[in-house]
């Protein structure tokens, strides 16, 4: 396949453990096939700082926990044709969203994390982006085109969905999608 026909591909990492990216890399030799079809234009795996225009496919890992992530995600949605949520955090909120149980209050979460459990210097940091009241899965904020559940999703499932999507087909998820 010639270089011109490659699609622009991006990966985004929000509130998550990066395990989904690890699982993405676990596609191992299949990555070689994939790399023939894509241009990696933005990713935590590269050093690109600004999310580019005209991206064909973006996979997003992680939930939305703060205003910076919210802003980035909206930009990603605007500039991407097909957006795929990858992993339970992006799809349900998962572990990052457990803080929602604490009265839906980021203040109490910060107090617990930085004051009550601190050994020294009990100070709530102010230089970091403001937390949202609730951690949200992607589809509560933007339109998501496809979902790959799992914590993390197995590499084979990621590969299946990407192969189908890149070939212009709709992946069949019955019997494949497992949370956790």
């Amino acid at each position: 396949m010639s270089r011109e026909k490659r699609i622009n591909f991006a990966t985004v990492w929000l509130s998550g453990c990066s395990g989904c990216h690890m699982s993405f890399l676990d596609q191992d030799e299949l990555l070689i096939d994939l790399s023939q079809k894509i241009n990696l234009v933005y990713s935590p795996l590269t050093d690109v700082k600004v999310f580019p225009d005209d991206v064909d496919v973006t996979i997003v890992e992680g939930a939305i926990g703060n205003v910076e992530q919210m802003e980035l995600l909206k930009k990603v949605r605007e500039r991407t044709k097909i957006l795929i949520a990858i992993g339970d955090c992006a799809i349900t909120g998962n572990v990052p969203a457990m803080r929602n149980i604490i009265n839906n209050s980021p203040e109490e979460v910060l107090k617990r994390a930085y004051v009550e459990t601190a050994d020294k210097n009990p100070i709530i940091p102010t230089e970091v982006p403001k937390l949202l009241r609730r951690v949200l899965p992607l589809n509560e904020v933007i339109k998501v085109d496809y979902y790959i559940p799992g914590c993390p999703p197995p590499a084979s499932l990621i590969n299946y969905v990407l192969t189908e999507v890149l070939a212009g087909r709709t992946p069949v998820m019955e019997g494949k999608a497992k949370y956790g």
Partner: peptide, 16 residues
């Protein structure tokens, strides 16, 4: 959820 292909939730979750 796996059998029926429930790959995301269209309704907001409760966090109580």
């Amino acid at each position: 959820a796996r059998e029926f292909g429930v790959d995301h939730l269209r309704v907001e979750r409760e966090w109580k």
